Amino acid sequence: MDTVAIAAKGISVSVDLAVGHLADMTVDIDGRRLKPLHRAPWVGEPRETLPKDLPEGTVHLSGDFLCAPFSVSDVEAAPLHGWPANSRWDVVDSAATADGWRAVFRLQRPVMGATVDKILTLRDDHPFLYQEHVFSGGAGVIPVAHHPMTVMTAGGRLAFSPKRLAATPNEAPEPDPARGRSLLAYPARSTDLTRFPAANGGTIDLTAYRMDQEREDFVTLVEADHGGPGWTALARQAEADLVLVLKNPAELPVTMLWVSNGGRDYAPWSGRHRGVLGIEDGRTAVGHAASLGDNWLKREGVATAFALSEGRSFSFRHVIGALPWPSGEPRDVTTSPGRMRILAADDAVRDIVFDSDFLRIGRSVPA
């Protein structure tokens, strides 16, 4: 694997340049070494043992990557999740800073005519990766999403910033029982994340990741208006840590959850992709054409793409972090200048260093 690594005090990240995926992320904190991100079990296996038509992004599936578009590329021809997730990136710059490390990567292929840059920043003693993607030039409209994946050996508990509703698409990821299984109802929606309609007529708690539920499911959460950062926190039970994913809701108004727990029986998944959760913050519907058309999110007043324009650029930011956590999901996550405060279910408080200015909460975002 052709990777490049960057590091600051207490944190390191490596990037798979073949596809721009984060190949690994390590956080050293409180005497522990945490690895919040997932790598598919087939990564590194001989290519000839994998299906010939498998997209390169799935061959290298790991960590986090940029989707542009998210899901099906049915406007500009490209593999699943677009060229940013499936083709080569170059290192433009990588150097130490006064308080950490900053690296810039550029996608070799244009997206709808736009140049795409990935900027990764690590700060000394911050247990967070700060990411920014910049699209320059081009024409048309492009939906985008991050695709961070974590993995658990014994499940975990989820908590979120306030969400307006959760909804599944029209069709399940695995509707054919000969190939796999999904447990949520499709289509369905709920304003109660602990009681989402299930395919069997009952309900499923979206805040609980259970290892005994073999399934492949996908659900979109729409951010409520609350004035703060959007966040997802996953307390991994066996790992005894907290994985945190943060965004600016004005930039990325939806969070899509991909539950992949032994729910696909065909290669390369073959029932071995277990305990994986994708926490996919985006400005998108499912698919490029769907994001441009009259989709259900637009009818809810939610933006599903950015406009490209020659001579102009836009960017969006994202944060991934991890810290030790005894048990149970947090009750709340708030930020103040230079800090993040996490409130536990037992009212215990954890304060950690955080670049509270990075997400630019409150700035206006062009459509």
Rank of each mutant, 00 (worst) to 15 (best):
Q108D: 13
T232N: 07
D217T: 03
V141K: 14
E171K: 12
V222N: 06
D241A: 07
G155F: 06
D241M: 05
G140E: 08
L129K: 06
Q131C: 12
P173I: 04
E174M: 15
T121Y: 03
L193C: 04
L221K: 04
S161A: 14
D205E: 06
A240S: 13
A167D: 00
G155K: 07
T194M: 07
R189G: 02
T220I: 15
V245D: 04
L193Q: 01
N200L: 03
K163N: 06
I142A: 07
D225C: 00
L107H: 15
L242I: 08
A199T: 02
R181Q: 14
T150H: 06
R164K: 15
V141N: 13
M149I: 10
S182V: 03
R102S: 12
D176G: 09
R179Q: 14
F160W: 12
R215S: 14
D117S: 13
S136G: 05
V104T: 15
A167R: 13
T115W: 11
L120I: 13
D241C: 04
P110G: 10
V222E: 01
A208Q: 15
V243F: 14
E174D: 13
L122F: 10
A159S: 15
P175N: 09
L193S: 02
A145R: 06
W231I: 01
D217W: 00
L183N: 06
I119K: 04
L165P: 01
V134R: 15
G228I: 01
H226V: 05
A199C: 00
P177Q: 11
R195F: 02
Y130N: 06
F160Q: 00
Y209P: 03
T194Q: 13
V245N: 06
G230K: 04
E239D: 11
A198G: 15
L246Y: 03
D192Q: 10
W231M: 00
K118Y: 12
Y209L: 13
A199H: 04
E132P: 08
V104E: 13
A208Y: 02
P148W: 02
R109F: 06
V219I: 09
Y186L: 02
K247L: 05
P177H: 09
D124I: 04
R179S: 12
T150P: 01
A159E: 02
L129N: 03
L107Y: 02
L234D: 01
L234E: 01
D192R: 12
P162I: 09
A167V: 14
L244M: 09
A240H: 14
G140Q: 08
Y186K: 03
K247G: 02
G137Y: 08
V245K: 00
V104W: 08
G140D: 05
A233C: 12
P187C: 04
E214C: 05
M211W: 02
A139F: 13
H126E: 10
M211A: 07
R164T: 09
Y209V: 06
Q213P: 00
A114V: 11
P162W: 09
H147Q: 10
L158Q: 12
K247I: 09
T191Q: 13
P177W: 08
A159L: 04
F135P: 02
A233H: 02
T150C: 15
A167W: 07
H226P: 02
V104G: 04
R210Y: 00
P110S: 15
L206W: 03
G202T: 09
V141Q: 14
G180V: 03
R195H: 09
R102P: 03
I142E: 11
E216H: 12
G228P: 01
G228E: 11
K163V: 13
D217P: 04
P175M: 05
N170W: 09
D124G: 08
P229A: 10
P177L: 05
